[in-house]
């Protein structure tokens, strides 16, 4: 295509093209071999990549996602033991370690709606004797926390938090019942005494 040397050039430089633009001269070294090699490899890669993903049966992103999510589901299934019994949860209420962990989760996830002491805010007071969903047993609380009350803005934490963390936060919520924090939200729901 191009040749090494211009016949009119009087330069000693064998690569000189004889071009001169404002004093800038141009050599004509060949491009490095590795440069061409990688260029050709990248074009071949592109060709086969396109062939594989767009014209042949390369795995689509949605298929890959479905496969990955199946894996997640099987991890979750393996972990999801039978629903905790009233006794399991009650035992946690008596465990200082569980309550400490539960308080941390509560501080991170729950205080924005239920107040830092569970006194209520956007969401209901968790410390009084009034319950909206269920009768305030640990199992009732567990159901509300895992399944949420979506129409009222209570998220279903079962999909977000690992099962053990849910149990501990449920235990913590049960433990603050009757703690009479300052500035409580007025009662909502039905009054239930233990």
């Amino acid at each position: 295509m191009t040749k090494e040397k211009d016949p009119h050039s009087n330069s000693d430089n064998p690569h000189d093209m004889g071009h001169d633009y404002d004093g800038i001269r141009e050599d004509n070294h060949p491009a490095p071999t590795w440069w061409w090699t990688f260029f050709i490899i990248s074009i071949i890669f592109g060709f086969f990549y396109f062939l594989h993903y767009s014209l042949m049966d390369g795995e689509t992103l949605k298929h890959r996602l479905a496969r990955d999510m199946d894996q997640i589901e099987s991890l979750r299934a393996k972990d999801a033991k039978a629903e905790p019994s009233e006794a399991d949860l009650t035992a946690l209420v008596a465990s200082p370690a569980a309550l400490k962990a539960g308080r941390e989760t509560f501080a991170g996830k729950c205080v924005s709606c239920h107040g830092d002491l569970g006194q209520g805010g956007i969401g209901p007071n968790l410390t009084d004797n009034y319950w909206i969903h269920g009768a305030g047993t640990v199992t009732d609380i567990y159901h509300v926390v895992t399944q949420g009350v979506l129409e009222k803005g209570m998220p279903a934490w079962g999909a977000v938090l690992p099962p053990d963390e849910v149990k501990r936060v449920v235990a913590y919520v049960k433990s603050i019942h009757g703690s009479n924090p300052p500035n409580p939200k007025p009662p909502q729901g039905t009054e239930i005494h233990d």
């Binding site: 295509m1 690569h15 071009h19 800038i24 141009e26 050599d27 070294h29 060949p30």
Partner: peptide, 20 residues
Amino acid sequence: YYYIPKAVNKPVYSYRLSVV
């Protein structure tokens, strides 16, 4: 392509590489 050869006062390395 202008300021490097001007500042160093050397020819541009490869015309054919420029084209490609």
